Simulated assay, not measured.
Amino acid sequence: MARESQRVKLKGWEEENQGRGRTLFITSLALLIVLIVVLSWAAFQLYAGKPSPRNASSPHSTPVQNTHIPTSTITNATPLPQVTPPRRDSTMAYDPLHHLVLLFGGTIEAADVQQTNETWAWNGHGWKQLHPASSPPALQGTMVYDAASQRVILFLYQVQSAGKVANEMWSWDGTTWQQLYPATMPAVVGASMAYDEAQHEIVLFGGGVPSGRTVTMVNTTWTWDGMNWRQQYPATSPAPRAGAAMTYDAVRQQIILYGGTGDGSGVSSVASETWTWDGTNWQQHNGAGVPFQDQNVHLVYDSVTRQMLLFGAISSDATWAWNGTRWVCVTAHGAPTAPFQGASVYNDAAQSVIVYAAQGDSKMGTTPVPQTWIWSGTAWKLLP
């Protein structure tokens, strides 16, 4: 009987242990399922918070409605209606990683004319001055977004004594500026610069080489691969010039260049020429029409209407579009006139062209007034 009783007790213990084991297994399995669900949700939220690689790398990609805007340096700042005080000869670029338009530098007319190295940003609602830890010097230049390195690249013109050019390059990472030190640097001022999305490189053309009080125009073509500048030697090139309007045509996958000044005295024979760059050679488009014969007009690609827009003449407020063969007038009136005193760029986040200009000239008896213009795709609007 004692042995039988012991067997019963052992059997009971075994059944009890098996029950506990099943309970522990079911509990562990449930916890594992909950852990998998939590990790999956966290991974989804992390991925959703990142900008699309396509939209981040190219400001001319097909516009996508943004459901999540990353925190930028001006998200919680109170924007101003205009960049103040007004300045001319600024340069602008759109930063798709941080969804804002960046404006750098310019010439301020105060008690005397002075250059500024201020950095401003437009977040779609207003302007806000940024205060980066490091800033470029107060020099004129040109600026584009380099999709290959996902940085805004600033090329500054600096003329030293005896006409020696010592240009500088800087990059913007969304928070501050960092100087770049390429082994080779184009020694020109007033050059035109654009990013070639098809070739994944920045193209810089023309400009002038100062010598004493004169400037000799050049027609050299340079490309930036993210590390260094390399001079190109195309079979055909535009005539020497500075201040030409140049940007990338995403529809035809080529850079287009319009106008410029070839003799340093204003309007010249090159002011109405149209050229395209295919990554290897330049081609002139004769018979394309002559929208303007003014220097320093503006050329911007509109991603929504997929049009190359030309505007900003001194003598005309019309807006023209490039169809690949000819220039076609899309609006006869309404465009900002003579915005060579400011800068323009396509704002991909807002799907519109933005122009900053300082209208007026104190030398002509008119006080400069800051202006911000927006192109909606069909008409221009001057913001209050």
Rank of each mutant, 00 (worst) to 15 (best):
V8C: 14
I26R: 15
L32V: 09
I36M: 10
V37A: 07
L39K: 07
L39N: 09
W41N: 15
Y47M: 07
R54M: 14
S58T: 01
P59S: 02
N66H: 14
T71E: 08
I74G: 01
Q82P: 00
T84F: 09
Y94E: 05
H99N: 09
L100Y: 02
N117S: 13
T119H: 04
W122M: 05
L130V: 11
A133S: 12
P136T: 12
P137F: 10
Y145I: 00
D146V: 06
I153P: 04
Q158T: 07
Q160T: 07
Q160L: 03
A162P: 05
D173Q: 05
L180M: 12
P182R: 03
P182C: 09
M185L: 13
P186Y: 14
V188A: 14
A191V: 09
A194W: 04
A194H: 07
Y195I: 02
G206H: 07
T216S: 10
N219G: 13
Y233H: 15
A245P: 00
M246L: 06
G260K: 01
S265I: 10
T274P: 02
T276E: 06
D278Y: 03
G289Q: 02
N296C: 09
D302A: 02
S303G: 04
Q307K: 05
L309S: 01
N323W: 02
G334Y: 03
G342C: 03
Y346A: 00
V355C: 05
Q359R: 12
S362T: 13
Q371D: 00
Q371H: 04
I374H: 05
L382M: 10
